[in-house]
Design a protein around this nucleic acid. Sequence first.
DNA 1: GGATCGTTCAACCATGTGGTTTACTATAGT
DNA 2: ACTATAGTAAACCACATGGTTGAACGATCC
Lengths: 114, 114
Amino acid sequence: MVERSAHLDAVFHALADPTRRAMLGQLAERELTIGELATPFHMSFAGASKHVRVLENAGLVKRTIRGRTHLCRLEAARLAEADAWLKRYERFWNTNLDRLEALLRAEDEAKARK
Amino acid sequence: MVERSAHLDAVFHALADPTRRAMLGQLAERELTIGELATPFHMSFAGASKHVRVLENAGLVKRTIRGRTHLCRLEAARLAEADAWLKRYERFWNTNLDRLEALLRAEDEAKARK
DNA sequence: GGATCGTTCAACCATGTGGTTTACTATAGT
DNA sequence: ACTATAGTAAACCACATGGTTGAACGATCC
């Protein structure tokens, strides 16, 4: 009965840590190496490495090894999954969006009927 | 430098567990007591109670005690915060939105230049 | 009052977490 | 060849997690 999704488990868990969210924020601007990710958080390489692995396991980051440096880039598809999950609850908080959706749907139907 | 948000920490952590996500799913349909929440997961009352507390601490559930039963209802505002955070990454997965943004920006600039 | 129901509390267990330090591998620069 | 650099691996720490059980508390029913 439990809605099982290892993806969502991993993604939400990865996002539950502020350091990791900040890392994603950095990666949204440009690709970064582990070292570049570690520096702003005055954290050891090994610490940053662990965080990156968590992000990687959640599918939020892809790594390409070039020489001795590991370049990390954001991979947002799994964020889309999380977003899709949240969307199911949108009606509970966003009445404006409800109206917008209704409006758009009405327009589409009008167009389809034209 | 770390983007600090205890709210987001708590919300994402609460969502990282499939049992809790399922509980929210149940609560999206109707208010439920702790016992009603516990039953479908063949889990002890105390276990369910702990999960509910996590959801409560994250602000995702509000509890009203009536007599000896505790009624839980979904409180989606904090989900909206999580959604807002995710929105910042929407352009990475939604190329349609990319184009829309580019279009709007171009219009704005044209207007500013007029 | 006594039994029962819904729930929490406290203790416990195994495991996971975020973080460190030290040691190691592998690439790069001189 | 020597050394410095980028990163991982492993061991460790203090603490949180998800789960259990058993006792306790408060409200309800007879």
